[in-house]
Design a binder for these strands. Sequence first.
DNA 1: CCTACCGATCGGTAGG
DNA 2: CCTACCGATCGGTAGG
Lengths: 221, 221
Amino acid sequence: MPARRAVPVAAPRRPRGRPRKTLAERDEGNRRQELVRAAARLFHRQGFAATTTRDIAAKAGMQSGSPFYHFKSKSDLLHAVMEEGLRAAGQRQAEALLTLQSDGTSAAAVAPEAALRALIRTQFDILLGPGSDFVPVMLYEWRSLTSRQRAGVAKLAREYEAPWVPVLQALRETGRLRADVHLARLLIFGALNWTVQWFDPKKGATLDDLTDAAMELFVHR
Amino acid sequence: MPARRAVPVAAPRRPRGRPRKTLAERDEGNRRQELVRAAARLFHRQGFAATTTRDIAAKAGMQSGSPFYHFKSKSDLLHAVMEEGLRAAGQRQAEALLTLQSDGTSAAAVAPEAALRALIRTQFDILLGPGSDFVPVMLYEWRSLTSRQRAGVAKLAREYEAPWVPVLQALRETGRLRADVHLARLLIFGALNWTVQWFDPKKGATLDDLTDAAMELFVHR
DNA sequence: CCTACCGATCGGTAGG
DNA sequence: CCTACCGATCGGTAGG
């Protein structure tokens, strides 16, 4: 048998195609998420412009340049915070509405009022509950997005807002709401969103108290 | 007659005491006010952190270092914007309430509802009417004050808010409001303050429309 | 993801 | 109030 031609020695064989993730690579998604979480908290507490990418890196345990390995720009980080916030919010809202339909109470009569209560309670949880940095950042920092990013976020926000309209419409038809439905929705959202500015759980009121007060304020007897 | 001793020639006689203001000096207050106005508009449009003192100087027709002749720091300028906003707002509110008392309608019955309408309408004017940059800046940028400045602004804000409570209390006693008075006031303020985020006069609704919608939403029949 | 760095910008000041 | 400037900070990048 002739000596085989020398072939370039291949590196130790590795499986073809997409490599199985090593431990470090599997971490990658987590590191990215840690950055988003750190950014959400800092943007919420200090505002976007007053937060440096160095602050965020430090909070995620990285060096100053490292966020830019995961995100093209500071504004992309802000965008990621908002998208994550709206995604989670939409999911929670959908779950709340589903629970409502399957809880067995006779739909027709109680429905719109119970639905509004569920929507409001969910909104308070998103705005003020544990881990609630993402949506407040969206509410108070959307000016800092590029206009292209802003358009995308606005679309997600409209999807989140959509389920409120038929509920308010139904309440209006039963005389429990007098105002124009669209203006009412905007005013109600303002009342809820503004709680981010003043609500302090240490002062005694709970999110349920807040929900009761809101229902009493908006829904007529 | 002996020659008089030479006396140092005095500069052209000027009146004693506080000098009459020259044109340039009379301008000084105006220049300061121009800075505050320019700052209010820019802080409102871009946010405090995203506005540079150079932006403000340029808008007031000055060089980059000149704002610091009038204000010790950027944060002092912000503080001046807020104090001016609250001062003007308090004055307008007081006028609105006075007009109410002297318009001749029999007080007892209509009073609380008419009073709430006047308060809301005034608030919309302050937030959305012509020249309405100052109070929105206060609402959305108070975090950027030093804690000492914040305490002063908070005190003025409490004075502005005070007249709302007895009005809401009276409405509650006549059954036109069901919610707790203090929570109701906070929720109502949120609904009004949030209009800064979405109200667009070009979309057809007027401040009177907004006032009607708010009254219909909050005041039960 | 770190190291080392750049270019730009910013609040603020001295001196007139 | 302008001129001229400083020191610090910041978003972002090259190269490994």
